[in-house]
Simulated assay, not measured.
Amino acid sequence: MARAAIAAPRLLRAAMLLLLLVAAGRRAAGAPVVNELRCHCLQTLQGIHLKNIQSVKVTPPGPHCGQTEVIATLKNGQEACLNPEAPMVKKIINKMLNKGSTN
């Protein structure tokens, strides 16, 4: 019986905290919205042939993910996660950056 009496105030406090967080979130107009708070790349490739790549997106570490992510969009529309530390991937990024700066 004593445990139930102790648990009820804790539950009430948790419910109140949740309501306050929801109310505060609704008032935060103009705050940036983050779609996902996790890494996109769970597995990475060591490299891929440059002729198969349409574009490359490099996402630095941040609140969504603690590691740099390199996502290549292939010419067939698929996306591939590349290991940013792999020598081949570093070459691909450099070639893509140089290709963009010459145009």
Score class of each variant (00 low, 15 high):
Gln67Phe: 10
Gln54Cys: 03
Lys91Gly: 08
Asn103Glu: 11
Ala28Asn: 10
Pro63His: 05
Ala80Val: 07
Leu17His: 11
Pro9His: 04
Leu82Ala: 02
Ala86Tyr: 04
Leu37Gly: 06
Gly100Leu: 08
Ile71Leu: 12
Glu85Pro: 01
Pro9Phe: 01
Pro32His: 03
Gly66Pro: 05
Val58Glu: 13
Leu12Pro: 03
Lys57Asp: 15
Met1Ala: 15
Ala8Leu: 13
Gln46Ala: 15
Ala72Ile: 01
Met1Glu: 15
Arg10Asp: 10
Ala4Tyr: 10
Asn83Trp: 04
Lys57Pro: 00
Val89Gln: 03
Ile92Ser: 03
Arg27Val: 02
Gly77Gln: 08
Leu18Tyr: 11
Gln67Lys: 12
Met1Val: 08
Leu50Gly: 02
Leu50Trp: 07
Met96Ala: 14
Leu74Val: 04
Asn103Ala: 06
Thr102Glu: 14
Leu45Ala: 15
Lys51Asn: 14
Leu82Ile: 01
Leu37Lys: 07
Ala86Gly: 08
Leu97Asn: 13
Ala72Gly: 09
Pro87Thr: 03
Val33Trp: 00
Ile93Glu: 06
Cys81Ser: 09
Cys39Asn: 04
Cys39Thr: 02
Pro9Ala: 02
Arg3Gly: 07
Leu18Ile: 07
Val56Asp: 09
Lys75Asn: 14
Ile71Ala: 04
Val56Met: 12
Gly30Tyr: 05
His40Asp: 05
Thr102Trp: 02
Cys81Arg: 00
Ala28Ile: 00
Arg10Gln: 13
Ala24Lys: 08
Glu69Gly: 02
Val70Ile: 05
Gly100Thr: 07
Ala5Glu: 14
Ala31Pro: 01
Glu36Pro: 00
Asn35Val: 01
Thr102Lys: 12
Arg13Trp: 10
Leu74Tyr: 05
Gly66Val: 01
Ala5Gly: 09
Ala14Glu: 15
Ala8Gly: 02
Ala2Val: 03
Leu42Gly: 15
Ser101Asp: 14
Val70Lys: 00
Ile71Tyr: 00
Gln67Asn: 11
Ala31Tyr: 11
Ile71Met: 06
Val34Tyr: 13
Gln78Lys: 14
Ile53Glu: 09
Pro63Val: 04
Met1Tyr: 12
Lys91His: 12
Leu37Asp: 07
Met88His: 13
Gln46Trp: 08
Ile71Arg: 06
Gly47His: 06
Arg27Asp: 12
Arg26Leu: 14
Gln46Val: 02
Leu20Pro: 02
